[in-house]
């Protein structure tokens, strides 16, 4: 019973709301000896694994700490450059902590607008007439459920693959959206949803589902 996140996309394809509910933290700490057997690069102000995988450390993971000292950008907390420390054979054995990077807001906006054409192409390539767009997108680690309202707003929930009854949850979120966003006199259509009542009610709904299951809502 895990719901990872909720997204709302407006009819023109822009992200108007997102909520990270229960995103697991993936962290791996490992002690390395010289020379380092994975390749790191510095990009987008982060030190990222670019080659080599071992014990849960994967390509794309970000270096967050060295010898227990947090890394911001490529700087250690005491001011040293972490890449220089890694180069230096005297600093070994070295304990490095890697984690899977969280999505930034920009990435979320980018992904939400990417879903829109996928949704449209899926209905165009359909072998049967009058097909809708993608309703469920399945991967090995999650399932994305999408509900498009008659007005074109898309509600998406990313949940565990075994989670059932998500379509009910989507309808429920639609209800909350109608009650607390649309009926809010200060909310204008197509704009990001910034309504406290909506946030708090959604939070309560998700927590309730986590405790008692979707069918009891």
């Amino acid at each position: 019973m895990v719901i990872y996140g909720v997204y709302i996309v407006s009819k023109s394809g822009g992200l108007i709301f997102n909520h990270d509910h229960n995103v697991p933290k993936i962290e791996n700490e490992h002690t390395f000896s010289y020379p380092l057997d994975i390749k790191l690069v510095y990009e987008n102000k982060k030190v990222v694994v670019s080659f080599g995988q071992r014990e849960g450390i994967m390509v794309g993971h970000v270096l967050t700490a060295a010898n227990g000292m947090p890394v911001t950008g490529k700087q250690l907390d005491d001011g040293r450059d972490v890449l220089e420390v890694i180069e230096n054979s005297e600093s070994y054995p070295l304990t490095l902590k890697f984690s899977r990077p969280r999505m930034t807001t920009n990435e979320k906006i980018f992904l939400a607008s990417m879903f829109y054409p996928l949704f449209a192409i899926a209905s165009q390539l359909s072998p049967e007439p009058k097909s809708s767009g993608i309703e469920v997108l399945e991967a090995d680690t999650f399932k994305l459920h999408c509900f498009q309202t008659l007005t074109g707003v898309k509600f998406m929930v990313v949940a565990e693959p075994s989670q059932t009854g998500v379509d009910l949850l989507l309808k429920k979120i639609y209800e909350l959206y109608a009650d607390f966003a649309l009926k809010n006199p200060f909310y204008s259509l197509e704009m990001p949803v910034r309504c406290e009542l909506f946030d708090s009610n959604l939070q309560t709904l998700l927590e309730q589902i986590e405790k008692t299951g979707i069918s009891n809502v």
Binding site: I26, S123, P129, S131, G133, A139
Partner: peptide
Amino acid sequence: FVSKISPLDTKKGFVCYKTNKY
């Protein structure tokens, strides 16, 4: 899309999608 939005590290990645017809 799937590899970016996934909350965990993917292995197989994208498996299938469903619409109301196929």
